[in-house]
Amino acid sequence: MTGLTQNIITAGTVAAALITLFGIIKSVIKYICSLNEKSRIQQERNAVQDKDISHLKEENRLICYGLSAALDGLEQLGANHSVPTAKTKLEKYLNEQAHK
Rank of each mutant, 00 (worst) to 15 (best):
T10H: 04
K26Y: 03
E59C: 08
A70L: 08
L56T: 11
D52K: 15
I63P: 00
R45S: 06
V48H: 11
K30M: 04
A98R: 02
Y65K: 13
I9K: 03
L56I: 05
G3P: 01
N7K: 10
H99N: 08
K100N: 01
Q42C: 06
N60P: 00
I32R: 09
I32S: 04
T10G: 02
A70M: 10
K38F: 03
N7M: 04
E91K: 11
K87Y: 02
K38V: 05
L18P: 00
L21C: 11
F22A: 15
D52A: 15
Q43S: 06
C64G: 10
T2M: 06
R40K: 13
S54N: 12
L74I: 00
V83W: 00
V48E: 12
I25L: 12
Y31H: 08
K89S: 04
G3Q: 07
N36M: 08
N60K: 14
A47M: 07
R45T: 07
A11R: 01
I8H: 01
I32D: 07
G73S: 14
Q76K: 01
L74P: 06
S82L: 06
L94H: 03
S82M: 05
A69R: 06
Q97S: 06
Q97G: 06
T20P: 01
I53T: 09
L71K: 02
C33H: 15
L4G: 09
Q43K: 14
E37M: 11
T5I: 02
E58Q: 13
I9A: 07
G73H: 04
D52N: 14
S34P: 08
S34T: 08
I19F: 11
F22N: 08
I29S: 14
S34L: 08
A47R: 12
D72F: 04
L18C: 10
I19N: 12
I19M: 12
A70F: 03
E58F: 15
S82Y: 05
L21Q: 13
G3E: 10
A15L: 05
E37V: 10
K26S: 12
L35K: 10
L21W: 06
D72Q: 09
L74K: 05
I29T: 12
E59G: 05
H81K: 07
K51L: 11
L77V: 05
Q76C: 06
S54D: 11
V28E: 09
R61K: 15
A86H: 03
I9C: 00
I41E: 06
R40W: 04
A70W: 00
K38G: 05
Y93I: 05
L90D: 01
L94D: 07
S82P: 00
K92W: 06
M1V: 03
L74V: 04
Y65P: 01
A17H: 05
E75M: 02
F22L: 09
I53N: 07
E58I: 13
C33Y: 11
V28R: 15
L77C: 09
K100Y: 01
E58S: 08
Y93W: 10
A70T: 13
L35S: 08
A11N: 01
A15Y: 02
L18D: 10
T88G: 02
H55L: 15
C64F: 11
R61G: 09
E44I: 12
V14D: 09
E44N: 05
A69W: 01
Y65F: 13
K92F: 12
V28H: 05
A79C: 09
N60T: 14
L62H: 12
F22V: 08
L56A: 14
L18S: 08
T2H: 10
A86K: 03
S68Q: 13
L74H: 04
C33M: 15
